[in-house]
Design a protein around this nucleic acid. Structure first.
Lengths: 347, 347
DNA sequence: CTGTTAGCGCTTTCAT
DNA sequence: ATGAAAGCGCTAACAG
């Protein structure tokens, strides 16, 4: 249509220089006239490049949060199966700084074309981000954004809003003047997960806005010492029988739910994050009232897709990508099935 | 790999008979060995067939429910732009039986290869479904299933569960012993929308299970006479000042919200269906507490995808496809954006 | 019953 | 700076 050969059109499409301005203009005109959009699946079959994409994220067991992200990533690789993508996972123990360092070092050693990062420890992540930047390796975050770094994009929920919504929900389903507990899972040293810090800020912000901060108690428990927790939680409830609502900012809601089950407590409302298998179970049992879900699969899927699009077409997407904040409860759980839906935001 | 030509492989893939058992077996073996999955986008470019798909659904204005379904359908057509799909819409007025009949008659006249139906009037839909069946034209439903017909598939929420969840939510956020109103929008004659009947059953079922049926009042209002409603609602609230929660089973929650706004009522909780623009607005204003959303875009998208896959590959999916029931409230509304997500359940 | 051929949209290589 | 040709996975038409 533009009176040039397909080769020239391709050169224009990919900005591979050495095309006369005249040809460029002619082609651009036709392109917009026919509303041209490249079809990545067709590109794929003739693309000769190979891509190595490395994913650094916490190791997780079946039914846990990071497993969802992982399967979203693999789904995207599968969708682009005509592109030669090698996807390597560098897992780390999310409760061990050392293992995180080792994993991140591995990422660099693998000399990837692009990286997906599931951050936990902020400082370590900044170090990695800077090294990637120095090597001109694009990267995206899933689960949370680390400020002070420059990823290609990030896919997470707005964690502040998540905490805020948790506060709104727990106060909506409990009588006025109730008292609340914020249970916090603590990890190594004082290092809180990036996500928890932000959720907490949102949560407290709601209570401050409504002049109810004085009705929130805070209790820390360790994920690594389940036995101590039993005692800790037990003592807490005995000493504070007036508590009507509990919020666990991370996915450990089932720990409290199990305590409820064991001690036949059913008048206390409970809300937590992440639709893990254990939480799902306790929702069905009626011990967890609401779970906020951040679509981990969708996050992983989008992250991989964005990278592939960037590597193949240089397509840049907006950096900030907040996922929906899903509210899951006993009555809509069965229809949620994040597994079966995968999302294509950037056609 | 199987020692046969691509032509033969293609014949096996599409069951276009006349292939020796020996070849079939050899090919089947290789296919499973390499975990072969056809790539529909690659098929598309060499496919010579043309498809005419007709959509019969209520006409809707910008920001209303059926507009979402429509855009999901168009998105799927766009995703398969290499396939020659002609998509025609036969709209009808969802409050007029006559217009529905005319629209459905049109569908048949157009002699489509497949049909997407957004049903409202049950009996008319059954007539259409039977005629399509007689002509061997496959069809799928969106929004709701019509029992007694045999679609290829349907995509809707579980409407009973939706009503049930509405009941659960409204009772969770109001004090014990509150009284409730179920507002019902009435259409021509006694003809209630298919969807409303099922939601109502779910709603009442929750109240019956909890022995609270006596605390539910029921009020009907007409969508077509907004002026009378103002008076009707007004009288109702004056005579029943003890009401603490209101549920509108369809998308007309904003009608009540507007009444609240005008009369400065803010102690009554309100829940309705469908994230239309007007409802969105009233969520932000704080007059609607929760909206249940059924992902109309996703429904349309899936419906079209399933038909295309069926027409091109004969792929059959399971008939019953329940979409997630999303709970939307002021704090997660901004991140919901169904528009930007489109779903691919049947990779 | 099967192989051959051409061609879809796209990219790359090589020659000019 | 450009075109021609080959080839990716896939389907269709034709010849045997």
């Amino acid at each position: 249509m533009a009176g040039v050969s397909p080769g020239t059109v391709d050169r224009v499409l990919h900005n591979r220089g050495d095309v006369s301005q005249a040809s460029k203009d002619a082609i651009a005109l036709v392109l917009s006239k026919v509303n041209y959009h490249p079809n990545i699946h067709l590109s794929a079959i003739s693309l000769k490049k190979k891509f190595k994409i490395v994913v650094a994220m916490p190791k997780s067991y079946k039914g846990e949060y990071w497993g969802g992200a992982r399967s979203g990533i693999l789904k995207a690789v599968e969708e682009y199966r005509n592109i030669d993508i090698t996807c390597k996972f560098c897992y780390y123990n999310q409760f061990s700084l050392d293992s995180c360092r080792t994993s991140f070092e591995n990422v660099i050693q693998l000399n990837p074309d692009a990286v997906i990062i599931g951050p936990t420890f902020k400082d370590e992540t900044i170090v990695l981000a800077n090294r990637l930047k120095d090597n001109n390796i694009p990267f995206v975050y899933i689960d949370s954004m680390v400020e002070g770094t420059a990823p290609l994009a990030f896919f997470s929920t707005n964690l502040f809003s998540c905490g805020y919504l948790m506060a709104k929900l727990i106060t909506s389903i409990t009588p006025p003047d109730s008292e609340y507990v914020l249970f916090q899972a603590i990890r190594v040293g004082d290092e809180s997960a990036n996500t928890t810090i932000l959720r907490k800020a949102g949560f407290m912000s709601y209570f401050e806005e409504h002049q109810m901060s004085d009705r929130v108690h805070r209790v820390s428990f360790s994920v690594l010492e389940p036995d101590r927790n039993e005692t800790l939680i037990g003592e807490y409830f005995e000493n504070n029988p007036t508590i009507r609502g509990i919020v666990v900012l991370n996915s450990r809601g089932y720990v409290i739910a199990n305590y409820f089950k064991k001690h036949h407590i059913d008048r206390v409302k409970l809300i937590c994050s992440d639709l893990t298998e254990k939480n799902e179970h306790e929702i069905k049992n009626g011990f967890i009232d609401f779970v906020l879900c951040q679509r981990p699969e969708m996050q992983g899927f989008c992250a991989m897709k964005v990278l592939v699009q960037y590597l193949t077409f240089g397509t840049v997407v907006k950096m900030e990508n907040f996922m929906p904040l899903d509210i899951i409860t006993r009555e809509n759980l069965d229809y949620y099935n994040e597994t079966s839906d995968t999302v294509v935001p950037f056609s």
